[in-house]
Simulated scan of single mutants.
Amino acid sequence: MNIAYLGPNGTFTHEAVSQAFPHAILTPAPTIQMALEWAESAKVDAAFVPLENTLEGTVSMTIDYLFHHSTMTIQAEYTLPIAQHFLLSKKTVQNNTPIVKVVSHSHALAQCHSFLHKEHASAEWIPMSSTAAAAAYVKENEDQPFAAIANKKAAEEYDLVLATENIHDVERNHTRFVLVSHETMTLFENKKKKTTIMVTLPEDRPGGLHSVLSAFAWRKLNLSKIESRPLKTRLGQYFFMIDIEEDWSSLLLRGSVEELEALGCEVKVVGSYHATYLEG
């Protein structure tokens, strides 16, 4: 199977997809949208993309593409613990010179603020397009006393030294990734499936969202997530992404969707799938 993922090599997406699919052909894409477009047009078999992070919230590019442009469905969900490490070139370690520049993605720099303030307050902190790009930059400038904040996969990819491990401020930081494809796949079976739907209300009226939630509440269906996103038609118009802890084959869930459609809602089923955890 050929899987497109958000590259370059050494990103957290690369780390996650490598664990989840060690024998697949992995094709890096420069953006989330391009990875999804390649899968949508069948240039690859599937796309592996981030959906949500504990600290930064939902990845809007993924949700918006699945709602507005895609006929693919989610086949599986993978949650990866996010651990940030302080990476140096081998020459910098040998020379033991003070670090003058720390590079990483802006989110990673923010997630490691306490460590940087305590250990490298005098260094320049420079944001880059990704943690992997930061690791590549340090490798390309290995004669300079620069450091990158990235993961272990990046250290392996760019032959850097793990100078200090686990420098992130928040311990329980995770990212949810999803595999999306036109092809129906059963990749693992561990627990009951959950189902993701996207709902557009018929009009902006008082109690509209309450009516949607009531369709699940009286059937005692548990919602693990609900989030609104702009419809991109006019100001104040939204669709709702809802995760339900129920298999799409459930008569109760199908009854809920039928009730929503009877209310005039548009409902898009984005997938019914299993979820699992990866090692950090």
Rank of each mutant, 00 (worst) to 15 (best):
P22G: 10
D159T: 00
K193M: 08
S114D: 14
K43I: 05
L26Y: 11
E245V: 11
M61K: 15
A24F: 10
K90L: 03
I32C: 04
A215F: 00
V270W: 01
A215N: 08
W218G: 02
T184W: 02
E140D: 09
M61R: 14
R219S: 05
H105F: 14
K192S: 13
A150R: 02
V161K: 04
N141Y: 10
Q111T: 01
R205F: 02
N53M: 04
G57D: 04
T31C: 05
G264S: 07
L6W: 05
L88I: 05
E171A: 13
P202I: 09
H68I: 03
E258Q: 15
E52G: 02
K268N: 04
R205H: 07
L252F: 03
W125D: 10
L253V: 08
I126W: 04
A215K: 10
L278Q: 08
T92Q: 13
A24P: 06
I63E: 00
N2L: 07
E245K: 10
L66H: 03
E77G: 12
E157Q: 06
I99D: 07
F86N: 03
P206I: 02
V161T: 06
Q94I: 15
F216Y: 09
H107S: 15
S106K: 12
D204E: 11
L160N: 04
Q33S: 14
V103H: 10
D247T: 15
T92I: 07
N190V: 08
Q75Y: 03
F216V: 13
Y65H: 01
W38M: 15
A135I: 06
